[in-house]
Structures are given as C-alpha cells and as structure tokens.
Design a protein around this nucleic acid. Sequence first.
RNA 1: GCUGAAGUGGUGGAAUUGGUAGACACGUUGGACUUAAAAUCCAAUGGACAUUAGUCCGUGCGGGUUCAAGUCCCGCCUUCAGUACCA
Length: 1022
Amino acid sequence: MKYNFNAIEAKWQKYWADNQTFKAENQSDKPKYYVLDMFPYPSGAGLHVGHPLGYIASDIYARYKRHQGFNVLHPMGYDSFGLPAEQYAILTGQHPADTTRVNIDGGHDKEGNYIDGYRRQLDQIGFSFDWSREVRTSDPSYYKWTQWIFIQLFNSWYNNDSDKAEDISTLETIFSAEGNTTVNAVCDENIEPFSAEDWKSFSSEKQQQILLQYRLTYLAETEVNWCPALGTVLANDEIVNGVSERGGHPVIRKKMTQWSMRISAYAERLLQGLDKIDWTDSLKESQRNWIGKSVGASVTFNILPNVTLSAVEGSHKIDVFTTRPDTIFGVSFMTLAPEHELVSQITTPEQKDEVEAYILATAKRSERDRMADVKTISGVFTGAYAEHPFTKEPIPVWIGDYVLAGYGTGAVMSVPCGDERDYAFAKHFNIPIPNIFEGVDISEEAFSDKAKTIIANSDFLNGLNYKKATKRAIYELEKIGQGEGKTNYRLRDAVFSRQRYWGEPFPVYYVNGLPQMIAAEHLPIKLPEVEKYLPTETGEPPLGNATVWAWDTEKNEVVSNSLIDNENVFPLELNTMPGWAGSSWYFNRYMDANNPDEFASKEALEYWQDVDLYIGGSEHATGHLLYSRFWQKFLFDKGVVPVDEYAKKLINQGMILGTSAFVIRVVPGLISKKGDVFLQKADKLPPIFISYDRELLTQNDEKGKLSYFTRDSKSEDIFELLENLSKEYKDYFTSEDKEKYDISFNFLHGIHVDVSFANASDELDTESFKNWMPDYKNSKFILNENGTFKVGRDVEKMSKSKYNVVNPDDIVADYGADSLRLYEMFLGPLEQYKPWNTAGITGVHSFLKKLWKLYADDNGLKVTDATPTKENLKTLHKTIKKVQEDIENFSFNTSVSTFMIAVNELTAQKCTSKEILEPLLVLISPYAPHIAEELWEQLGNSGSISTAPFPEFDASHLVESSKNYPISFNGKMRFTMELPLDMSKDAIEEAVLANEKTQEQLAGRTPKKVIVVPGKIVNIVG
RNA sequence: GCUGAAGUGGUGGAAUUGGUAGACACGUUGGACUUAAAAUCCAAUGGACAUUAGUCCGUGCGGGUUCAAGUCCCGCCUUCAGUACCA
C-alpha cells in the first residue's frame, strides 16, 4: 500500500461533498462556534499560494473545534462586485456578471481561454466550508438585503440623548411637538432652528430637505476625491499617496452631490467598542488613529472692528478648536487656513494683495507637496485683529498653510510657547512668544509636556496644573459665553456613491430632485442592462446608459426611461454603492444565507450571535473592518442583530512573499577611459548569462547604476569566450569602435526568470530557460567552478511581472493538498510576512510519507492491537499537549514540527499499536485531513474522522522519575548529569560536587556558591 | 515625527514563567543502494582554534541587573507596516 495522495484526496473531497459533512445546522445541542474568513474578490488571475494561508489556518481551527464537540459554522463566499470586472467589461464588452461567474465557477471566457475558477481551486485544498451557505455580493438575492439596510439607514437618525439610532418618525414627532431646538442629534451643521408651528407650516418638500440633514445616510453636496481616469469618486482609504489605490491615477478635489454615511455619529462607540474585542493591538491602534479623538474646547474669538473695512459689522467671529484651553493666556496670534471662509472678509485693504498672492500660491501646490514640505514656514498677516476673550488684548490674525481647512474649524489659536509649529511660525515672523509656564525655559523650543505643566502669567489659571487649568479655563469660557468643552473626531462621514456600473444599485428614485426610497417589498432593484460600461457622454455614471431605468410608482416596477412623466414614473438613481457595502454585513447573512424573506431569521441570529474567530489581512484595518463595525452597531440599534460587535477575535495573517529567481546577463561593451561613454551591442550576439556565484570584481559607473567588470585574472576566461564568439558574429565590434573606446568591459544586468526553472540548490534548468522565450533560444551560459549555473534570489511580493507566482494547483498536483496545507503552516508564524520557497515542501511531503509508513507498508496495514509501551504513550501524550496548546495559541508552525517529532519517535520505537496510532490521526486531521480520513477508514472506522473526539491529554504518562540536569559553571553549561527528580536540593548539590567532572572543572578551587533549581539546573559559582 | 511589529546559522524558523541557544525542516558535504538518475536510507553541519580531550566566541549595537539574559532594565541602530503640519 503506497501513499497515493492524488487518489486519496479526490476520494475524500468527493465524500465530504456527497455527505455534506461540513453542513452546519442552525439548531444544535452542541455549543456554537463561528469561524470566518474574509471572503475573496474572484479575480480572473485565480489563486496563488499566498491566498489560502488564512483559509488553511481558519480551517484547522474549525476542524479542531469540531473535534472538540462544537457546532461549527465555517462558510465561504465571494465579494464579487468590484472594479476589475468592470474595467475588463469596458475593455472586452463582456458583461461583468458573466466574467465573474466564470471566475468563480470556471469555464471558458469569450476568447475561449479556460478559467479554472475559484471554487475548484478552493475545493482541491480540502477546506471544510459549508458551501450550502455561499454568498455572492453581486447576486440580487444577496444585494436585495444590502439595499434593505440602506433603506433602514435612510429611515434613521442618531439621537445623542439615547445614544443610538432611532426611527426617523420619532424625529418627525418631536418636530411637530417642539420644533428642532431641543433635539440632540448628530446632523449637518448650520441647521436653522424652527418651532413646531414652523415645522407644520413647511411644505412637504422643505420637510424632506430638513429630514435629509438628520438621516444616517443622506444626500449632500460634498467635496469628494474625484479620479478623472477612473471616472469615479474614491473614498479616503482608496487613495494612497495622493493617487488612486487601483491604477495609481491622480485624484482631484471636486464638489458633487453624493450619498454619505453618517459614520461620525458612531465615532465614540466605535472607539469604545475596541476595548471589548480581542483584535490585534496594531489594528486597534490604526482604528483609534483613524477615529482620531481629541478632547479640548472650542473657543470663540471676536474680530476687532476695523474702520478701514468696507463692511464694518464687527460681528465676525473665529471659532477654534484646541486641546490646550489651559494655555489660552499664551495666545499671541491666530492662524487661519488659507481656504478659510473668513479670510476674504477680514483682510484689510493694505494686506489684500499679499494675502491673495499667498492663497493663490497655496492652491497651486498640490496636497502632496504641502504634506511633503513640512519644514518650510510660510504665512501672511491679514491685517485683522481678534480680541482675547479674557485680556481683551488685540491678537493679530494670520493665515498659514500649516493649518488645514479639513480638520477642526480650519483655524487655530496659536500658543507659540506651548506648540512646536506655533513656535516655529512665531520665530520666523518675529511674533512675541509670551511664556506662561512656571520654571520653564522657552528660549530654544516650545514646551509641550502636559504632565509637567504648571501655568503662570495667566490670571486665574496661575499655579494650576494642566488638568485643573483646563477645567477652569473651560468653566470661565462658558461663563462669558465664548467657548465650551468639546471633543473633536478626525473621522469623516463616508461618501457612499460611486460612478460605476458593477455595484449595488440604490433603491432610490427622484421626485423633484428629492430622493425617495422604494418600498422594501419591491426589492431587489436589479442592475439594468447597458450598452456600454463607461460614463455617458454628458458625464453621467454608467447607469445613465440604461434605457430601462425608471420607477413606476403605480406598477411598482422598473420601466423604460421613455415613460418618465414625473407624476407616476420617475428617474432612478444613477450611482451605485461602493465596494464596502456588500462586505459590511455578509457575516450575518451566512447565518441564514438562503432566507428569501429576511436578512436572516431571528432564530439564526440568536443562535449564532457573532463571529468567534475572524481571519483576514490587515490591509482592511480602516476600511472594511471599520465600516462593518459601524453597520453592525446600527443594525444592533435597530434590533436586527443581537450584538453590537460582530467579531470577538480577529487575527491578521501575514503575506506570503515570492522568492524570485534572477539570472545575470553579461553584455559586452566598450568604455572610454574616463568611464563616461559606453558602447554596447547586445543585439549582435546571442544572450550570454553568467552563474550568479561567479566571483568578479565589479565596478559601478559614476551614477552608481551600471555594474560592470573589466578584464583581470578572474574574468580572463569570460573575455576569451566572448572573443571567440565575436569571431562567429562578425559585426560585433568594428575596429573603428575599438579605436574610439579604450577599455572593453562587461555590463551586468539582472533578469527575472520563472521560479519553476530554479531548483532548491538555486541551479537553473537551462533547457527550460532556453525554451521559455524565443529571445533566449541561443543563450550561452558561463558556469561556475563546479560546472553548474546558479540563479540569484530575491524576496518580493508575488506578481506576474516577476515570474515568482506559484499556483497552488501545481503544488497540489505534485505533492498533494495535505502537503500544501502543512507547508503553508510550517513556513512560520501565521501573522508574519514570510517567503515562499517551493523547494522546502519536500520536508513536509516526506513527513506525510513517513506517517503513512507508520500505518502501512507494501504488505498492507501493519497496525496491531499491541499494548503500547511507556515510550509510545509518552510520545502520544506529549504530542496531544503540545498540539492542543499550539492550536489554541494559533501557533500552527510549531505543531507541524511536533508532528514530525512524534512520527520520528514512533518510527524509531517501531510502534504499531492502534491505541497510539488512532488518536494520533485525530490530532493530525485538522492539518492534513485527507490522509487522516484515509488511514482512519483503513483502521476500520466508518464515517468521517471530522467529528471524532479530540484525544484527552493524560499527564500521568509524562511523569518522569529523573532529570538530565545541565551542570553549569559560572553560567556556562559543561556537562549533564542524570539525577532523580525527587532528590532534595542538598542531595543534588552533594551528588554534583562528588562528580569527578565537577572536580575537573573546579581544578582545585572551592565553589563560592552552588545554585540548585530542582527540576531545572545546577549552577556552580566560583 | 508618531504608533505598532520585528532583528537568532547558508535559508525558513524553534526556545511557555530568566535556567542546556539553534528544536523541526530546507540547503550543503560525505556515505549506502543504483549501469545511471530520481526516490529512499545513514552520518556530519553556528563560527574559530585544537590530532583527541577540549577551549574560546556567538541571538542588531553599547551599557546594566542577576548565580544565570535571545528573554528583564537603560540608551542607540536597522528593517517592515500604518499614519501624519490633527491644533
């Protein structure tokens, strides 16, 4: 009986599918456990070996929990809306729904290429997913509920008093009873106050407009990140370094009417919630920074009337936010962002030219320039003065681009003695720097240490520390009506509209420009067919191309645009939802994925509650993982879901990097004596490559870019070879060339080659390489001293252009899924970034072969009913203990080595005992399920191993009677000594000192001290 | 700059509360088997010195605490990730 992994794996994958082994039930006497992976976007490129890493880890955990008697929910699905399918559609005209389906289910694309499909790729790795619960975000039966949630958000407002979302009808009730002055809501700024009578007298349209300012999703003209190349709006987290994350296109600011999500309403709860979930510290920290809470005060400064101003109203005020109200007496100037709306109103005629020039200059600088250039201090005096709220002294008002329009109020009170930036600004423009700190020297730099602050020269704040002074300052500000305590958040509301085709359509139509929700019973509103997936010629989103995209309010269905009469038939929304809409609630849908009537049934939600373990990449820290927490909290407020944090524990798996291989190409050339002029004629010769380990004295050109070598003893043979070659290729270098240039040299150039051409010893398969591309057909190779040709190695992200992508299909075909699973875990800690190197897989593969041999040889099964020996039991129980601890600590790499040790030991012990070998299979089955199932069956068990109970650890088998003590001298281990464990400290000391090796080490000296730690170590000092 | 993580053989990585550094693999070298290769098996493998016994040095760098430090403390350096003129 041989270990025929291909047959075994196919057999058991079929068994699991046929028997629905991993189907989870929504009712069970067992305790529940929910293991979730971040669902993938099904791209046309398919999976590479880096993708399944997290899935393997979660699968091991899910299988382990099944062995422990849990009812495990372990689902999988696809985040199948997205930009790549749309861009592919624009390029090829294929419907994104079709290409997406092929990418998942496999099949032929329009060009006739066969695409394997995600599903088959996942299946062959042997995951224990419950496929009956699969979701696809682009499926109407799924996005029906995404649209439903959107309607719920539209019909809700956030009540700060109850600190939760409430139905919009409660707000309308308040409005008609008391007006809006008593309402404590999260809403747009600058809403006009009105009374109950006012409300009742407003037209329906006016009422709708007002309500829109309170709804949790609302339509507003916002400044958005517009990407002209993609023809769409991007969220902040879709922009990296000022360019679009996808494609790297430039992004500009533009005003547009867009749907927004009032996530800012949940800022505090999103922050507080982090304390009760077990996510990694770095991820929580990212979210905290993103939310950006700062506690302080808002302070109002009045602008002093200036007789030279044309509009002398004297009513101009500057609102600022500060975290240091305690330093208010240190204010010596104020700074506004150049974009601040007050700038034009308060600037004096004398300063006008200068200010306008500065604003123009700032506007020209891109956001990027402004960010990159932190050192340069610039600003202009507006000529205006504000009045200090307490001292009534005039304070000059400046503008400066270090103040950002987008944060706080876009204006700051500048306290140069307490803030580095204010300090630098004051120094640069010779503004006074009053010192308001007791016993602190501020002649060189600002003092910003809150903890050591004692306020001075500050009237009623004198002698107070930071905490007390802050409290007092706020109290005094409130007393005079010029400020109050305030908490500021960096978190902005999220733009929710995208000008794309391949996303969820909004369930929204427009009456007189006002958005109306389509009633939930008419959902889903399906994506219309369009001729082209590009924006329309008039600049409307792709849905503007649809001809059947209007809502008939009588028939309650989507009808032809030609029927729009704005009485019964109205235009539908042309934007679609962003990528994060569908992924913000999918974990709830898995609980009851096929429910046509509800988002998920109450019973299912009550039973499964939340995700116990969530595994995915850390790149979603401030995107998906924040938005989904927001939606969950909202759904919790609405009573739809039973918990307000959906994932108890979250682990980020690290990325698997590719180990690229490259060859060094030698390009012969000529060089002038000064080394500044080169002549190369690479195309005249066949390509020449040199083994990577060939020792050469290389030099760099002036810029340090080109690496080359000239003739010396080490490169003599290379030059000879090239000269011989050049005889064959006559027009290599002409005699004229040789006159012009002085030195002949060889230029070295690294070229990535397909990783499959290089073996574990870094040797290149030169024949495969030659056949790889026509250009390399006649390649010549310069070998090393051992007569082999070696490639260089580099660790970098897997990408097609580096030819370092490894397809799991190939690994599964060559070594089997169990080997792939074990090897991915064996590579290193789950959360770490680590390089993939296919060569190393032979280690785990031969481990599986050894495991197999423990159970069966050429004559068949060799497991017996023999009574296990003490050693056998010790090995087994040691393994149970370690593996259990490892799984619970997500230290999967170390359990793989534990298995190797166990199998090595049992092989050495010639163990054939079923009592040992049967439980060993259960231990291994989460990691290598196929081989475990097969041997489990061979041992005479019927049914799947997947629900066999996890072996019980029995400590009694590990009890030792003696210990091999390390005996060290001054901390250095010299030899070991076997001593009974029940020996007393004194007896150990005596025995060790009596040992002749001890005397040898001491060489006559008397030990000063002997440290004996029973069961651990003996250390002799002296 | 700030926040978080990490620096251990030729490589991936072990080392649970301070207690035998380098487990387990890969690679390398030598050997067995084979006509040969692959596969498999055996042995060696941190570095230096030493015929052996053994000695010295070794966990990014410099200090410190301790009988004992990869692990704890202080001060640096480097790499990766996130974030940034956040008032």
